[in-house]
Nucleic acid binder design. Structure first.
Lengths: 254, 254
DNA sequence: CTAGATTTGTTCGTATGTATC
DNA sequence: TGATACATACGAACAAATCTA
């Protein structure tokens, strides 16, 4: 039998056309988050279709994270800055079937983090540096319970997420945050990626301290090189994370 | 007035709960693309809700690219491998508001492409090499119309997309393809990024030929270094692409 | 090719919760 | 506080698509 799933729908759905039109309209008019879309009545007139079709299109835009729909008077569809969490969720849907391996994740991290560190160096505020110091201090306490060890591991990752958010390159920031989020999810839900705990976390703390020093002195190239060493070390400590990671992209609820 | 869009809805919508449950179910049972989800009636019973609510949940999964829905006997929601185009579209929604600049895009490209070239080197089949050669030959013809010049520029980008698809790291493959797709969209719709046409395309052809040679001889490190030079050159030629690129993420229809 | 079975798709009406004014 | 506007959810009936005999 012919694989039916390969067939292309005869007609493009009306609601999808509306979604496309609304997107183009938002882009061309440079609408900003918080701006209101036309209400249902106006959209019905503009696209000459029923209320249900308009609602379906708005629902689609909502799932994509582009609008939020408010109830009450003066309610309706508000344009929304797509939250990181939404983009992350949708990219995880894609990766669920692509099944990247543990080494794949760490390889990307090793590639991306040094560049992030270099770009972030001149952009870190005193507050940022303080936050980084606090995260390192949290990792230095002697962990007594498993939960404490876990939250230290997460603090270690938050260090990198903060750098990613400051690197000034929107795409690199997204990738950096996404990679560290994936590792965080694996740490929490698979309870793996906690290998060689003592030696590993000591190495991490040492690297983080050196990195903060480089940031303070504005030495971007040094930060990049330190970060590269740090990532190579992390890659090494997590070498046994070999298996394919299916059931952890779709399955994790953030 | 307080920004209402920041408020969190008190109750999580029923249909969103169903979406989460279905995702977890798919992940835990290691369902594969092509597998059928329970039909509407069964889902209504399982989640004790109305047909409308189930349909809303299925619609959400459809927008996310996870299922396709067919009518008729043996119809229903089929699990789909999320297509690259879907993931790309959803990530562009996010980036629309982040507004990466032209240099941001090229900086990421310069970071990622050398690694892709290195990883792809031992993975290219003879067919792949032939395809790469064909793409270069297409770029060598003397362009007579603007459309021909455009399609040559696209062939140049397809060279990189093919490498990305062969690099063996699912995430790096996605990023590589996505970056080159963004540049392609800019070339087509903004009709910019066609600077210094002659000199630029000659340089590209030369690099691509050297790359193919490195691939043939299996010299991965050489391929990486060549690609880095190639990207630095492309970055330089496209330096004037400075402006923010809003209205081109949402607006482009693929 | 037709007829019927099966499953999704659409459209009503109604009720209820919730936010706004 | 109460009226209003909108979203959410339910149920039932009907329409359309698609497969099979």
């Amino acid at each position: 039998m012919i694989d039916k799933s390969l067939r292309i729908p005869k007609r493009i759905k009306r609601s999808d056309q509306i979604v496309e039109s609304v997107k183009r309209w938002v882009a061309q008019n440079k609408m900003q988050p918080g701006d209101r879309l036309p209400n249902e009545r106006e959209l019905m007139e503009q696209f000459d279709c029923s209320k249900g079709t308009v609602r379906e299109a708005l629902k689609s835009l909502e799932v994509q994270g582009l609008v939020s729909i408010r109830t009450g008077p003066n309610g309706g569809a508000l344009l929304e800055r797509v939250p990181y969490e939404k983009a992350s969720e949708l990219l995880r849907n894609f990766l669920h079937f692509e099944q990247p391996s543990g080494p794949d994740i760490y390889a990307l991290r090793t590639l991306v983090e040094p560049e992030i560190a270099m770009l972030a160096t001149p952009r870190l505020s005193p507050d940022d540096l303080n936050a980084l110091v606090k995260l390192v201090e949290k990792c230095e306490e002697e962990p007594e319970t498993f939960d404490e060890r876990l939250s230290q591991r997460i603090a270690e990752l938050d260090f990198h997420v903060l750098l990613a958010q400051r690197c000034g390159n929107a795409m690199l920031a997204f990738i950096g945050r996404f990679v560290n989020d994936m590792i965080r999810d694996l740490v929490i839900f698979k309870k793996s990626a906690l290998p060689e705990q003592r030696e590993f976390s000591c190495a991490n703390i040492a690297y983080h301290k050196q990195l903060i020093e480089a940031f303070r002195e504005g030495k971007a190239e040094l930060a990049r090189d330190l970060m590269y060493e740090h990532m190579k070390s992390a890659e090494h400590f997590n070498k046994e994370l070999e298996g394919r990671l299916n059931q952890y992209f779709l399955g994790v609820t953030n």
